[in-house]
Write a protein that binds this DNA or RNA. Structure first.
Lengths: 334, 334
DNA sequence: AATACTTACTAAACCGGTTTAGTTGAACAA
DNA sequence: TTGTTCAACTAAACCGGTTTAGTAAGTATT
């Protein structure tokens, strides 16, 4: 492949490696106009391209960052990655993607792999089970930015969506449509900040309109096992007029379950989802959702990380990005 | 960051850099058991991790490949990339993603960027406008594997879906449901092999059942401008009883147009799409489609590329992957 | 006892750049 | 005349590994 090296250019131009290197790095003040011209010509003639590996070895930089996500295939995740990557490419960086498939052991391995690869920094959507490990890498000097944070941490470099506000808005929207029995479908949120915030938004909205917060209306879901109670049970025990699903996977599970139980949306119950759904416009009933801005989150994460890399003393930042309620046809006035 | 280097390990173990290096590369036959143990201990104590950049500099390898796609955000593309990446990671490679957004100039730039980065090989879903350029890089010794090929080429290392068979199957399926007027909606396929093959499959099926091939039933679509004729015009001039859309974007455009024109699927017309749609189960009418295997395509592409990298004399291969017809509810017997 | 062969190492070159610390010759000042 | 300064370079060290060629000591062979 490209076997032309600096010494070839230098020889052809009749200068030393040093001078050729200076030229290539734009430090023209150390050589005559004439010399510059000769080197330029030599570079052109030989079609020379510097070897970034050799360059990076000396510079102790890789111009590469790592991105650890749960699954690049996801509707939201792929967009976040696109945002990260676009910003990186614009700034002469490359991004290496590592998928964890929601497995915190793989997450830990990925972190170590990236560390060993000497990436200049890492963006991670952490499972929350490696908080200490992440702190250790930060300690060692690795710039790390987090997003989609699922745990309560004192993390400093972090991009978050304004979940609380979004949940408040969605709940208030339902209340204004006359709903009082809104079923909040969620993963366990006791120790998970991002989920807790959604719950707070929900509770705040109920509170504002003097609607009692009823435990039966809080329903739990898990990634492996799905809904804890069947739709029939939930309807029977809590009699909700609306469901508020806390993320995409919950929304689709609910949708399937409601379909199967022949419960019509929005005629029998209303539904709001957290996170937009691809192809929603073609759904039997287009679903009203809270939309996050994954592309923007990616761009902001990359910006924050690259700033941290170039300016080590940069104070850590939290960046909050707001969500928007995308109203479609899955909620009705009652 | 990790500043422990080989010399530190060597010093602590009381050996030379050379011996330490031999040890790290598993060439134990050149040293005593005792020495091995001391080096192992030193590595452990210092928490030493070799610098891959220094290693790669000497090895003339980057253990990195480039992947050029149109948009990582796509439903199919993200899965292909996941396949590529999974295979790469398993084989100690990393993949760098470049998005072109369907722009062949960006494609050319990406190719050059990856070449300059000295990646060990490239997987590309080419626009078809850089055929010569790609051949030049192959000439220069860069292993390149192509997929989602949109042009007619004599490319050797290539993964393709069996479009012809798939289009034949879909068309035959419609014919067996009693359809004779099947509208083939496509991008211009004269010079684009992958599209032409679909057309061949369509034509072959019609031919098998002695159904005349009617030009009015071939309808064109473009990425920028959408359908050439309005649905109303098409219905009026060609009177199709079924539509066969040649890729995802065409399917969704058709779906919107039919929706808007209040033409019901499958009551008024049947519809088959090429490429599956995310969330299809929640559609007003779940659409029957031809499913490709993007993950598998990614894995195969990566396999082929890594084989080419490790074995330079490896004969080039074409790998054909079949599609499957996923029948849902968008076609009816007539 | 002399020679050959092993074993267990090490010195030094090398990968392809960047950077530091000089060097050289000319102009200028004292 | 001698010293100083400056412009325009270059030699060599350096980044952190790998690899080749070589060496010293011990054992086996003749």
């Amino acid at each position: 492949m490209a076997k032309v090296k600096l010494i070839d250019v230098a020889l052809l131009a009749g200068v030393s490696k040093s001078t050729a290197s200076q030229f290539l790095n734009g430090r023209f003040e150390f050589m005559s106009k004439d010399t510059q011209e000769r080197i330029r010509a030599a570079v052109g003639e030989l079609d020379y391209v510097p070897n970034p590996i050799a360059r990076n070895l000396k510079a102790h930089k890789t111009k590469t960052i790592g991105v650890i996500v749960r699954d690049i295939t996801g509707f939201y995740t792929s967009k976040t990655i696109r945002g990260v990557d676009d910003w990186c490419k614009q700034n002469d960086y490359n991004a290496l993607i590592y998928n964890t498939d929601f497995d915190s052991a793989i997450e830990a391995k990925s972190l170590e792999a990236l560390y060993q690869l000497r990436v200049d920094g890492i963006i991670i959507a952490s499972s929350g089970k490696n908080t200490k490990l992440i702190a250790q890498y930060v300690e060692k000097g690795m710039p790390i930015v987090q997003f989609q944070l699922e745990h309560d941490g004192s993390e400093k470099n972090i991009i978050l969506s304004d979940y609380k506000q979004a949940a408040f808005d969605a709940t208030e929207y339902l209340i204004k449509l006359g709903h009082k029995r809104i079923c909040f479908v969620t993963q366990d949120f006791k120790k998970v900040k991002s989920r807790n915030e959604r719950y707070q938004g929900y509770a705040d909205a109920l509170n504002k309109y003097d609607i009692p917060l009823e435990p039966a209306l809080i329903q739990y879901w898990q990634r492996e096992t799905g809904l804890q109670h069947s739709i029939a049970q939930i309807i029977k025990s809590a009699a909700p007029t609306a469901f508020f699903a806390q993320h995409l996977a919950i929304t689709t599970d609910l949708l399937s379950a409601l379909n199967q139980a022949q419960i019509a949306i929005p005629d029998d119950v209303s539904l709001i989802g957290f996170d937009d759904l691809p192809m929603a416009e073609f759904f039997k009933v287009p679903i009203t959702v809270i939309k996050q801005e994954p592309y923007m989150i990616g761009v902001e994460a990359a910006k924050l990380l690259l700033n941290n890399i170039s300016d080590v003393n940069k104070a850590a930042q939290k960046i909050m990005i707001s969500c928007s309620l995308m109203t479609r046809q899955s909620c009705r006035q009652i």
